[in-house]
Design a binder for these strands. Structure first.
Length: 271
DNA sequence: GTTATTTCCTGTTGGC
DNA sequence: TGCCAACAGGAAATAA
């Protein structure tokens, strides 16, 4: 399931193939994603030069002179670059075709993703305007997080997954970061002291940075790959390790549900 | 304003 | 072997 590191790795992987290229057409085989793909997407984008490929939270932004294509991978989406003909398979819903024949192919079995057309400043679009800061940016600091935790009785796990507070921390990295910071995911936001908060901010940044670095080395090939492009997983401390021994203290890892989501933690290490 | 719940979708897994 | 329920999950939409 693509989290921020996967999206950033994807951005880097496709950027070199798309930047400054001209779009010939966009072939939509199935428009039924999270929202319908605009019927006129292809004619809007045709003959436009790709100026940049940026990322905001888990959204990818393909910027053209007359607008922006916004892509979200949902939870099962992936993008590949094809430099030669390759038959589309069942869940290959979209091809963005360049004038040189190269294709950006979108696959998404669960169709939780999105392809939308934005005009004007994409960062002001309703989907992006109310998002919190990027976790790897300077704006996401201990002082900032502390300001967001005042009077918050919600569990810290759910707070760091709230896009209004900080973006890009999904279910996997929320559990991992809290383990690495030795913080019990069930603690309420306001119960964290400044030391906890500094530690948590640092571990979120480190965990995500390491995953991006790992993704760059393990998934460098986004060209003509055989369909597995997109996902990778860090060697987790707690995620998915229910009942297995904690890598630090050997206590069995525990699972609970918070807000309909699985949370994994070590009851011995995390307080 | 804040917080909790529901919804979107389908491939995979486990129980019977 | 087949059937079916449960599960996974980001984030918008809706409810409380």
């Amino acid at each position: 399931m693509p989290e921020l590191p996967e999206v950033e790795t994807t951005r880097r992987g496709i950027e070199t193939h798309l930047i400054n290229a001209t779009i010939k057409e966009i072939i939509v085989r199935n428009p039924r994603l999270r929202w319908p793909i605009p019927v006129d997407l292809s004619e809007l984008a045709a003959n436009q030069v790709i100026l940049s490929i940026r990322r905001r939270a888990k959204y990818l932004l393909i910027e053209l002179a007359n607008g922006t294509i916004l892509i979200h991978l949902g939870m099962s989406g992936s993008l590949r670059v094809l430099t030669e003909a390759y038959p589309a398979e069942k869940h290959d819903h979209v091809d963005l075709v360049l004038s040189n024949g190269t294709r950006l192919r979108y696959r998404d079995p669960r169709r939780f993703g999105a392809w939308l057309w934005l005009t004007g400043n994409p960062l002001l679009h309703p989907h992006l305007a109310s998002l919190g800061p990027e976790p790897l940016g300077e704006q996401f600091s201990p002082a900032y997080l502390a300001s967001k935790l005042v009077n918050k009785h919600t569990a810290i796990k759910q707070l760091i997954m709230d896009n209004h507070i900080v973006v890009g921390v999904g279910n996997i990295y929320a559990s991992e970061s809290l383990f690495r910071a030795r913080i019990d995911p069930q603690r309420s936001g306001h119960s964290l002291d400044s030391s906890d908060i500094s530690n948590l901010v640092e571990q979120i940044k480190l965990t995500l940075s390491e995953a991006i670095a790992a993704g760059g080395s393990t998934l460098r090939d986004y060209v003509d790959s055989d369909g597995k492009a997109g996902y990778f997983m860090i060697n987790s401390y707690v995620y998915g390790r229910t009942g297995q021994a904690c890598r630090i203290c050997s206590t069995p890892i525990n699972t609970i549900r918070q807000g309909q989501r699985a949370t994994f933690y070590c009851p011995q290490c995390q307080h």
